[in-house]
């Protein structure tokens, strides 16, 4: 079953007086539980594609179905809710909330959902923190953690809502190679345990070996799917 179904996706940006055609007609389907990598040079449209899939950027043209819903027709409230309930994000620069500690950062999306009790939230967050191996750092603020640790927190935060898809934009770019590998291993492990679809972008060829499938993108067009 396809969790993502994209047809004829175009995305244009206005940059001063010129228009940048970031995506020029992308067709792509991604199966549930996939561990997919999007590869391509800087400026090829990787991040834009991830942003559109992640409902944080809208398409200029085309159709994008995420978890069976056509997201191009949703309003801000619905699309925000979509992000919260169906999508997890892992950023290149970790993007943790600096005033919250590890536990709070992981709990944060669940709190926004306003669904679970405080105890259940705590339990779920602690379980994930344990899974990413940060049990000892549960009360540490982001500034007190290393890059790898921060990204682990980010992974736990992304997974805590049990999303259908986790999008990771160059998750290892700001990490040394050893830590990067650990993170990818962790992601793979989580993909296995939680059966969550992972889509990550990278321009590092070494990372590709972890991917179950790979999409190559160049100048806003998919050039190869494997």
């Amino acid at each position: 079953m396809d969790i993502i179904d994209i047809k004829g996706l175009k995305k244009n940006y206005a940059l001063g007086s010129t228009t940048v055609h970031a995506l020029r007609g992308v067709d792509l389907t991604i199966a549930k539980g996939d561990f997919m990598s999007i590869i391509g040079p800087s400026g090829s449209g990787k991040t834009t594609l991830l942003n559109v899939i992640g409902c944080i950027d809208n398409a200029t043209e085309g159709s994008v179905k995420v978890s069976g819903r056509e997201i191009t027709k949703l309003n801000d409230r619905e699309i925000t809710s979509m992000r919260l309930h169906h999508i997890g994000f892992i950023f290149q620069t970790f993007n943790l909330i600096p005033v919250l500690d590890t536990l709070e950062n992981v709990e944060f999306p669940l709190l926004l959902m306003r669904k679970l009790s405080k105890q259940d939230i705590r339990k779920r967050a602690e379980k994930l923190i344990e899974e990413v191996g940060l049990r000892e750092y549960i009360k540490h603020r982001p500034a007190e953690l290393s890059g790898g640790q921060r990204q682990r927190v980010a992974i736990a935060r992304a997974l805590v809502t049990n999303p259908d898809i986790v999008l990771a934009d160059e998750p290892t770019a700001n990490l040394d190679s050893v830590t990067g590998e650990q993170i990818l291993n962790l992601m793979k492990e989580m993909n296995r345990i939680e059966n969550t679809t992972f889509i990550f972008s990278t321009h590092d060829a070494n990372v590709l070996k972890y991917a179950r499938s790979v999409v190559k993108i160049r100048d806003g067009l998919i050039v190869k799917e494997a």
Binding site: S81, L84, N95, I97, L112
Partner: peptide, 11 residues
Amino acid sequence: EIGTIRAIGMQ
């Protein structure tokens, strides 16, 4: 930060 919390799903 605003971008992050919006992305995570804050209304």
